[in-house]
Amino acid sequence: MNFLQTEPIRILLYLVGICAFVGANAAYLVLAERKGAGRIQRRPGPNEAGFGGLLQPLADGIKLLAKQVMVPPGTDALLFRAAPLLVMAPPLMCLAMIPFSDSITARSLNVGLLFVFSFGSINVMALMLGGWASRNKFAIISSARVVSQNVAYEIPMLLVVITLLMVTGTMDLNEIIQQQGGGFWKWNLFKVWVNPLMPVTFVIFFICMLAETNRAPFDMAEAESELVAGAFTEYGGMGFGVFFMAEYANIVVGCSLATVLFLGGWQSPIGVLSGGLWGAGWFLLKLYALIFTVIWIRWTFPRTQFYSLLNLSWKILIPISLFTLLLTGAMMKLPVVYNHFF
């Protein structure tokens, strides 16, 4: 027992755990996505491989692995190969910060939130590199779009996070969760006495999360009906597979973050049964509810136009999030002002 708690072993265990978690999630979220799409479109989805299609991810994996990794002539071979690795790294790093339960965190940092956001923004660089190195016009157009999209959505997202920081007063993710204990009315989502626009803030965060992870209706990175496969046009086999996995890993990170910041993380919504494995259960429940919403949105809406996507960010989301920021500040200082004068 003592041996297991030594730092190197603990890190190794968590590393393996996170990789397994991400791998299993990426594989089975693809299946869940396809099943969910099938459900919404009134068809069964993959159901031939294994019972109810449960072995489909395995079959897909074998197929992708069996394919030749092509490096098209004229590309920057090094960057072309590096991009899939770079795109996979940030979500793995970020997941190390996420507290799955009060006692299950790979690495608890007092600047966890900062860490997650700084690593989260590397993601876009990988996509840009992949698109650029492909030497394909569609891929280049797509990577240009992805960069401007990610830059645009980073701002409202961070504004929302600053609002939350003002409320919580800490960057330690575990502490943020602990503050939300004791029932769902204590969650940041419902803290309307701090900021009456808290649900709106959550919606903004969720929209930004969709945009940051390049999910429909903001899937400019792929945009398959316009740009063939966007930044991934020239990728095949496992190179493409890794991009695909990274997309789902990013969704997991984004949704975990939303869960931590707004939905009370591993806290129980009824105020009891929130420690240990119960906590992990609550966390995963909330996480997968959010992921399901992401899938649901994808299969409901058409893709937004690129400039209306930027318009949405610069003209709607940023002003609103700035307003909520000011409002929160005012609401927090109101008692002080009140006390000072009266």
């Binding site: 459900r39 919404i40 479109q41 009134r42 068809r43 069964p44 649901w296 949105i297 409901t300 809406f301």
Partner: peptide, 18 residues
């Protein structure tokens, strides 16, 4: 947007036609 999501949810509850 919410109306759209309501409709897809409603359709998802119907049986498969394949």
């Amino acid at each position: 947007l919410l109306t759209g999501m309501r409709i897809t949810a409603r359709e998802a509850a119907k049986p498969s036609i394949t």
